[in-house]
Design a binder for these strands. Structure first.
Length: 587
DNA sequence: GCCGTTTTCGGCCCGACTGTTTTCAGTCG
């Protein structure tokens, strides 16, 4: 069993946090950096090691001799003595405790030493009995905040951010598909509806049903294979047609084997949403049919069920995409044939939020552009941070002009080589507390695209926050509001802001609202997207990429847009470059 | 612990906010 990049990264992150606890300087950041890089590597580190040994591992940026040796030990033995030693000294559940907003390594150490807090349960106990407020460095307020933080963690607990677990789900789907006798394997449920977070994954499998004996043997083999996959840590059920396991990452996965003639009905049933299914069954009853996971029946006779399409058709409905099955009007629209044609997963032509090495990205402008090209995109906007975000080395008026030279050089190069690709001069400019911007108007006016966003003063009143963003929108240079609500899924609620008013203002000012596709942002939320669609406010789906492989997240932005009923016409970066720029210029 | 088109040793990591403070530590982006 070989260790994954994610697992290596987790251990390196934790080492960084342990060192931070001890007050060690600089090393924590070094481990963190190494973890970040490894997390976003294309190739598995174990493969890199197999291919080129310790030397090749040292070539990973941010990994030097010391960390490379630790990775080697992890690969060879599955353990790391250094990490075990740190863990023994302060045996706390770091991932659980750091998930509480406002708790970092230092406070966790104090809580462990003074109150023996090892995990979330301990933390809640001592917070509820008022012990934390009496601790030096803590007070009533921080105790309150910890309790609030715990509630938030608990509420989001047990769910997984779709974009972060999707690779693992796809890997399992693909492995099952590769087995002999398997015709289909597909995750249903909230995975298929592309919800922001999922509780578990239900994978449906169809096998060749020809000789029944062969089918039965195949089903058995699928089940045996599934429960013995390397990442399985617990088997809840291991039956003939259904098995359920828990994976190393904590996620539960079910597999069901189905006959082909029921596949559509089962897919529909297991995809949900529950309310959507109930409504479909009621509709079936009205037509004197019966709908179950085995099919649509008229008496004993199955009249549909092999595909979802034929079920919807038999019920007098247009086909409803899984992302719309949330009972927000999709059935009525399907009856009246007014469902929108949703933006497709391959429709994006550009990406209007991309960070590079100039600030907190990991790759150069050229590397990011090449990666975008490889993804089939035709343009990207380079949107490095501005000086207010000092920790990223944010650009000021001067440095951003330096960046333009590099961009001009690349565009010239591709033009000469007859490659159809364009890098746009852009920014992720900070909206300051009063709604003014972090770059001068003179500079902003020279950019191809101006994106702005809130990164500070999250705690303004709703009125102040709304006015702040509105002021930015009214600046004629501003084109796009990036991640408009500022929420981080499972970590931080949105700041207080009147989204209805912002979207209305966007309509008046021609401002584009972003759908940030990063899996823990997905910001706008689906209901805001729907508001934009209804009002005719345009949107952009951006990766917010900080590394070359981050363009993969665009699909989750498209999913979010589809959940908000967005069409291709609603999304400006699904348009050709000239049309997109023309639109921005007009406003 | 990492890194070098200023450097192989001496730099990295800046500013705001919060809650606890009476001059600052911890956290976050």
């Amino acid at each position: 069993m070989s260790i994954t990049n994610q697992e290596i990264a987790r251990i390196l992150y934790e080492i960084g946090e342990y060192l931070d606890m001890q007050g060690v300087a600089f090393k924590p950041r070094a481990y963190e950096k190494a973890a970040e890089t490894i997390e976003s590597l294309q190739e598995e580190t174990t493969d890199i090691y197999k291919r080129g040994g310790l030397k090749a591992v040292e070539d990973i940026p941010g990994v030097g001799v010391s960390i490379a040796e630790k990775i080697e030990e992890l690969i060879k033995t599955g353990r790391l003595k250094y990490y075990d030693g740190l863990k023994k000294k302060t045996p706390v559940d770091l991932s659980e405790l750091t998930a509480v907003e406002g708790l970092g390594p230092r406070k966790i150490k104090l809580l462990y030493q003074k109150l023996g807090v090892k995990n979330l349960k301990d933390l809640e106990r001592v917070a509820k009995t008022g012990k934390i407020s009496k601790l030096e460095g803590f007070g009533v307020k921080s105790e309150e905040n910890i309790l609030k933080g715990i509630e938030f963690v608990k509420k989001s607990g047990g769910r997984f951010i779709l974009g972060f677990v999707m690779p693992e789900i796809r890997m399992i789907e693909n492995r099952l598909r590769a087995l002999r006798g398997i015709k289909r394997a597909e995750a249903a449920g909230s995975v298929r509806r592309r919800k922001e977070t999922i509780g578990d994954a239900d994978i449906l499998v169809v096998i060749e049903s020809k000789p029944p004996a062969f089918a039965k043997a195949t089903a058995g083999k699928v089940m045996d294979y599934f429960v013995s996959m390397p990442e399985v840590v617990r088997v809840f059920a291991h039956g003939e047609t259904k098995s359920a396991v828990k994976l190393k990452n904590g996620m539960d996965v079910d597999v069901r084997v189905l006959p082909e003639e029921s596949y559509g009905a089962a897919l529909n049933y297991f995809t949900g949403s529950k309310d959507h299914n109930i409504a479909l069954r009621q509709l079936a009853v009205k037509k004197r049919y019966k709908l179950s996971e085995y099919g649509l029946f008229d008496g004993k006779k199955q009249i549909a069920g092999r595909t979802e399409e034929e079920i919807y058709r038999a019920l007098g409905l247009d086909y409803i995409e899984p992302e719309m099955r949330e009972m927000t009007g999709e059935l009525e629209a399907a009856q009246k044939h007014t469902l929108p044609k949703l933006i497709g997963y391959k429709d994006l032509k550009g990406d209007l939020q991309v960070q590079t090495k100039w600030t907190d990205g990991s790759n150069s402008i050229e590397e990011m552009a090449e990666a975008a090209m490889a993804k089939g995109l035709e343009y990207v906007a380079i949107t490095d941070h501005t000086k207010r975000l000092a920790m990223t080395g944010g650009l000021d008026d001067k440095r951003i002009q330096k960046q333009w030279e590099e961009i001009d050089g690349l565009n010239d190069k591709w033009q000469m080589a007859n490659r159809k690709f364009r890098v746009l001069k852009s920014t992720e400019c900070d909206i300051l507390k009063d709604g003014s911007l972090d770059l001068s108007d003179e500079i902003l006016a020279k950019l191809d695209v101006v994106g702005v966003s809130v990164h500070s003063n999250f705690n303004l009143s709703k009125r102040e926050q709304t006015e702040r963003v509105k002021r930015a929108m009214k600046n004629p240079n501003v084109d796009i509001i990036f991640h408009p609500t500022g929420r981080l899924i499972q970590r931080r609620e949105s700041y207080e802001v009147d989204m209805g008013e912002l979207i209305k203002t966007a309509k008046e000012t021609g401002t584009v609202m972003e759908i940030d596709a990063f899996p823990d942002r997905l910001d706008l939320k689906d209901q805001h997207i729907r508001m934009c669609v209804d009002l005719g406010v345009k949107m952009t789906i951006d990766s917010d990429a900080h590394a070359v492989n981050h363009f993969d997240v665009l699909e989750f932005g498209v999913a979010q847009a589809r959940r908000g009923w967005a069409k291709r016409e609603d999304i400006i970066n699904a348009w050709p470059l000239e049309k997109m720029l023309g639109f921005l210029k007009k406003w």
